[in-house]
């Protein structure tokens, strides 16, 4: 399977200066005495597709989970659309505010995490209905649109257990999109899939990137990193060890750990 090179989306030329939509400063997280994030500074521009790669245990999943505060960072700052995540306040006020800020991110999990008691449409409509307070017809119409967008128009009223892994993951993508996120976070979205189901999910993600969605993708799919991403970030030991556009990143890697990492992947890349 060859990813066509025109899959890469055109740069947003109409913008003279790129707008930073998401940035972190000195983000830190440890579990017990194990340091997982060791001061992450990352800036993501509006419309940029960033791939994060690295060995397991390098902190890439933790970084993604800290961004929308599924894990609470120990220190540092996250700014999304100019606002700081998890600002201080009373417990209750902070939770409301945090919930509101989390909507700015769409999160796609490795294991889909669809709600098993709800159909595909209900899964996608749950956020618009119960978080945004839309009436049912409106929320479900939106859900249908999002499901058609990921080619699932035939499966609107099926439960997750009636869908393949690839279909479930696309429902999960639709569920995130229905909340109009500013940034989509993908946590190894194809790692739990049978090989023959990987492509349909990658296709949906590539289409999303082509529409100009800002995306952060933790993945082991090097084709995706090479052909779809605007920038590739390599993490090692809780730090960003190297980053750059795919051409230079893969063509002329500098960091010794990255060279070793890429050598290991060579047969499949």
């Amino acid at each position: 399977m060859v990813m066509p090179s025109d899959g890469r989306r055109a740069q947003p030329v109409e913008l003279n200066r790129p707008t930073t939509i998401l940035s972190t400063r000195d983000l830190r997280k440890s579990y017990g005495d194990k340091l997982v994030l060791d001061g992450i500074d990352l800036d993501v521009q509006q419309g940029e597709a960033v791939t994060i790669i690295g060995a397991s245990g390098s902190g890439k999943t933790t970084l993604l989970r800290c961004l929308n505060w599924l894990e609470r960072p120990d220190a540092g700052e996250i700014r999304i659309s100019g606002a700081i995540m998890g600002r201080n306040g009373s417990v209750v006020a902070r939770e409301r505010e945090l919930a509101r800020q989390r909507c700015l991110f769409g999160f796609v999990f490795q294991r889909f995490n669809l709600f098993p008691h709800l159909t595909a449409v209900q899964n996608v409509a749950l956020g618009p209905r119960r978080v945004l307070g839309q009436p049912r017809e409106q929320a479900e119409a939106r859900a249908e649109r999002e499901l058609r967008r990921v080619q699932l128009g035939e499966h609107l009223h099926k439960r997750p257990s009636q869908l393949s892994g690839g279909q479930q993951q696309r429902v999960a993508i639709a569920r995130a999109l229905a909340m109009d996120p500013k940034v989509m976070l993908f946590d190894e979205p194809t790692s739990a899939l049978d090989p023959e189901l990987v492509q349909e999910v990658l296709d949906s993600m590539r289409a999303l990137a082509a529409e100009g969605m800002t995306m952060l993708v933790v993945t082991h799919e090097m084709r995706f990193a090479r052909h779809v991403a605007d920038r590739v970030v390599f993490m090692a030991d809780g730090k960003i060890a190297e980053q750059g556009p795919p051409e230079t990143f893969f063509g002329n890697p500098q960091d010794a750990r990255l060279k070793r990492f890429l050598r290991h992947l060579e047969p499949t890349a």
């Binding site: 599924l70 919930a99 509101r100 989390r102 999160f107 999990f109 294991r111 995490n113 709600f115 909340m179």
Partner: peptide, 18 residues
């Protein structure tokens, strides 16, 4: 109930009560 369920619900902006 598996932890991922709560995380998925949080990720679409729900509060703990929701």
């Amino acid at each position: 109930i598996e932890k991922g369920q709560a995380e998925a619900a949080l990720s679409i902006g729900m509060t703990r009560g929701g």
